[in-house]
C-alpha cells in the first residue's frame, strides 16, 4: 500500500509539474521542472524496497551478525537507489541552475520576459514561423529593437517571398 501511495504521489507531482511546465512564463517553467525533479526522485526511490528507518550503515560486525546478505537486505534500506538519487539530485540541480542562468541572460539581453515561443516571435530567430503580430503588442520594448532587428535580418519577414526564393 505504501507503494501505491508513493505511486499516487509521484503521479500527482508529475501532473502538477506538467501543468506548470505548459504554462506561459519562465518562472513557471523552472518551477515545473523542479516538481518533475521531485517526482522523479520519489519514483526512483520507489524502485528500491522501502524500509522504514534503517539507514544503510553497516559495519563489519553487523555483517557477521546478520549472516547472509539476504538478511541484511531485509533489515536495511536499499542503498543503491539512494546513491542513484543522490547523483540524480545533483545533476538536476546543475541543470536547473543552468536554465535559470539562461533565463537570466535572456532577460539581460532582451528586456522582455516572454516564453520562448513568444519571445522568438519578437526576436524571431529560434522561430522563423511564429506570428509577427506579437511584435506590435510590445511597443515598450522598442529600445531593444535594433538588436532584435539585427536578428530579424537573419531570417525572413515575408513568408510568401521566401517560398518564392525557395523555388528559385
Amino acid at each position: 500500500m505504501t507503494a501505491l501511495m508513493l505511486a499516487l504521489l509521484v503521479g500527482l507531482l508529475f501532473a502538477c509539474g506538467t501543468y506548470l511546465v505548459l504554462q506561459r512564463g519562465q518562472i513557471k517553467l523552472v518551477l515545473g521542472l523542479g516538481l518533475f525533479t521531485h517526482a522523479i526522485n520519489l519514483a526512483l526511490f520507489g524502485t528500491g524496497r522501502l524500509t522504514r528507518g534503517a539507514p544503510p550503515l553497516v559495519d563489519g560486525e553487523t555483517v557477521k551478525a546478520a549472516g547472509s546478505a539476504a538478511a541484511l537486505f531485509a533489515r536495511y534500506a536499499d542503498p543503491l537507489p539512494q546513491a542513484l538519487i543522490l547523483t540524480a539530485i545533483v545533476i538536476s540541480f546543475g541543470m536547473t541552475a543552468f536554465i535559470v542562468m539562461l533565463i537570466f541572460r535572456r532577460d539581460a539581453l532582451t528586456g522582455s520576459d516572454l516564453l520562448p515561443g513568444e519571445l522568438a516571435a519578437v526576436v524571431n530567430t529560434a522561430d522563423p514561423f511564429a506570428k509577427f503580430t506579437l511584435r506590435m503588442q510590445l511597443p515598450e520594448a522598442a529600445d531593444d529593437y535594433d538588436l532584435l532587428q539585427y536578428e530579424l535580418d537573419e531570417v525572413y519577414d515575408y513568408p510568401e517571398r521566401e517560398v518564392e526564393n525557395a523555388r528559385e
Binding site: A97, M101, F104, A108, G111, S112, E140, A141, D143, D144
Partner: peptide, 19 residues
C-alpha cells in the same frame, strides 16, 4: 560560482528598467 556571480549581478541595477 553561481551564488557569487548572481549576487554581483543583483547588486548592480538592471540596465534598463523602463519597461
Amino acid at each position: 560560482t553561481y551564488l557569487l556571480r548572481l549576487s554581483e549581478a543583483a547588486e548592480t541595477p538592471p540596465p534598463s528598467t523602463k519597461h
